[in-house]
Design a protein around this nucleic acid. Structure first.
Lengths: 152, 152
DNA sequence: CTTTTATCGTTGCATATGCAACGGCCTGGC
DNA sequence: GCCAGGCCGTTGCATATGCAACGATAAAAG
């Protein structure tokens, strides 16, 4: 049968596989040298980008669930990379921001990460790069739509 | 600075995120209803596709490391979905194949999985679909190249 | 003002996974 | 043949993660 499932052609497989391989490659830019989880790295990067925010916002910015954010922040705070300041207006929450050390770390890692991304993408002709970016954006939009309408 | 790292534009982030969301969506085709890991599902699908093979081959076909294959196969064997037959010519290895039940399960799941993929892709115009596929293929090739030359 | 309900972030528990070490088996050099 | 070294698949340990339940606080209902 022509439409039998072929794993290597199957989009979810391909995406998972690409993501894993890219992560592994990129890992040498941060996890190996700086002992950071993906979640921790996302929190750092997002705080560098947005300034400060509560855990809830960080979760939205990074697309991590609150548990992952909570744990990442705990570890980053222990290491003195992130500061937690209780919010006087709502004692359940705290404002999160980078410490100086956190800023420095992002300043070290970000260029490496961008360089790695560039090394990956520079292998593709500009036209194809744009096609890929557009494809990903469309897929993201499609997922938004599907998730909005629900699984039925 | 214009080239500061923006998480949502960062390719590794986007790929990870897409892969997670697609997996979650697809999960309802198998993990939820049939209690299968991604690794287990890949082993089943690949055995359905290739017939039979040793663990080493399955690992290559599925892009899983040997540990994941070993564990997936153990569980699938316990559940009577996969058969392990020791190889008389090399007692370290065994030939893996689907049982009748395993075949049936793949026959149940595969159409659902393909339908889900179609539902996802049908949202995109055919031109964009092809662009996406080509983009992914190029990225895969680029990663092959980078992995071959090593991390320096 | 008191009670109920909802929200925020954390934690316990169960599971999936990677890494390193292992036991059994095979093979090439002697 | 025999032994050192290598390969296959498995297991122990450490970690990352999701889910569900929780304590504290806030907001809504009464």
């Amino acid at each position: 049968m022509a439409n039998a499932l072929q794993l290597r052609q199957f989009l979810p497989y391909r995406l998972n596989d690409l993501a894993e391989r890219v992560s592994r490659g990129l890992a040498q830019s941060y996890s190996r040298d700086f002992d950071l989880t993906v979640a921790e790295w996302r929190v750092l990067a997002t705080l560098a980008e947005h300034g400060a925010g509560q855990a809830r916002q960080v979760a939205r910015w990074t697309n991590l669930d609150k548990v992952r954010v909570s744990r990442a922040v705990s570890r980053l705070a222990e290491r003195g990379l992130v500061r937690r300041r209780r919010n006087a207006e709502d004692l359940r929450t705290a404002d999160l921001s980078l410490t100086g050390a956190g800023d420095d770390l992002v300043a070290t890692i970000a260029p490496r990460a961008l360089a790695w991304e560039a090394r990956l993408l520079d292998g593709l002709p500009p036209t194809e790069q744009r096609a890929l970016q557009r494809g990903l954006a469309l897929l993201e939009a499609r997922l938004d739509a599907l998730e909005a309408e629900g699984p039925p």
